[in-house]
């Protein structure tokens, strides 16, 4: 899990083009889409994360509402990947 979270941090920074963010600055428990949060992610970023899960982990998310739960934080994302990866 820890290892996956570290990997995800790097992948998210790359996929979302967060040039000035260092992996250590992302708290695994912090809400990714909090408007006042560090990352300031928005709806396009949520779609990019769906692409990331497909591209890197072969996981397809059909329902966007489902995405909201999965992308709550890095922890929830990692848990989802572990449960759904083949």
């Amino acid at each position: 899990m820890e290892e996956l979270i570290e990997k995800l941090k790097v992948q998210i920074i790359k996929q979302l083009n967060l040039e000035d963010v260092e992996p250590d600055e992302i708290d695994p428990n912090e809400m990714l889409f909090d408007a006042n949060g560090e990352l300031g992610l928005d709806s396009i970023d949520a779609l990019e994360l769906i692409v990331l899960l497909d591209k890197e982990y072969g996981i397809k998310i059909k329902n966007q509402d489902e995405g909201k739960k999965i992308f709550h934080s890095l922890n929830t994302m990692a848990e989802y990947i572990l449960q759904h990866q083949n």
Partner: peptide, 9 residues
Amino acid sequence: YFPSPAVFV
């Protein structure tokens, strides 16, 4: 085939 929404926009 991974079209990127953040690029498309």
